[in-house]
């Protein structure tokens, strides 16, 4: 009986363990800031009231689950916002630059987590290449194995950007 209880309480961990979670980190927040909002800027953390969230949701048709957003603002009134959206299975962190006139200036993916990808980093998996490699000269730093497959849609990002543009429209432009 006791054993069964133990199994039950660890079951979620067991389910998660074998797949492994791989997070591909493209840019840190500092790097994203250097690219999307170079120059002086001050941190302007945003806190959305319940009423504001409701009104953003109504205007763009996308849920606003978080009330706090990390944001930076340049003296010229340009914004850099950090947010995350739910991809098919996992969260994707993104940075979006919005100009003082409310136009999207750039979108960068910061991290992309997905259940797939873990095995590619495993030594046993990589060993399958041995003897096959035509010309494996490269790679200073880290191993890079590009991944090919049917196209994954980036619609979740489009919705996330729409939500931030609406957040600018309703909240930030009056800030």
């Amino acid at each position: 009986m006791r054993r069964r209880c133990l199994i039950r309480s660890f079951a979620p961990a067991l389910l998660l363990a074998p797949g492994g979670l791989h997070a591909q980190v493209y840019l840190t927040r500092e790097q994203a800031k250097a690219i999307l909002l170079p120059g002086p800027a001050e941190a302007c953390p945003i806190s959305l009231s319940k009423k504001e969230r409701r009104s953003i949701e109504a205007a763009c048709g996308v849920d606003v689950p978080r009330e706090a957003l990390e944001a930076w603002r340049s003296p010229a009134g340009d914004w850099l916002l950090f947010d995350s959206v739910k991809g098919r299975y996992e969260a994707i962190d993104l940075a979006v630059a919005i100009s003082a006139r409310g136009e999207v200036q750039g979108v960068e993916i910061l991290t992309y987590r997905e259940t797939y990808g873990y095995e590619v980093r495993q030594p046993e998996w990589r060993r399958q290449f041995h003897g096959k490699t035509v010309d494996s000269k490269l790679k200073p730093g880290k191993d890079i194995t590009p991944l090919s497959g049917a196209t994954i849609s980036s619609q979740s990002i489009t919705r996330g950007v729409r939500r931030l543009v609406q957040t600018w429209e309703q909240v930030l432009r009056h800030a």
Binding site: Y116, S136, K139
Partner: peptide, 17 residues
């Protein structure tokens, strides 16, 4: 650059390559 590549396995595209 590295000449290796991973191709998603159609039987389990989210996990295997």
């Amino acid at each position: 650059i590295d000449s290796r590549v991973a191709i998603r396995d159609p039987r389990d595209p989210h996990r295997a390559a």
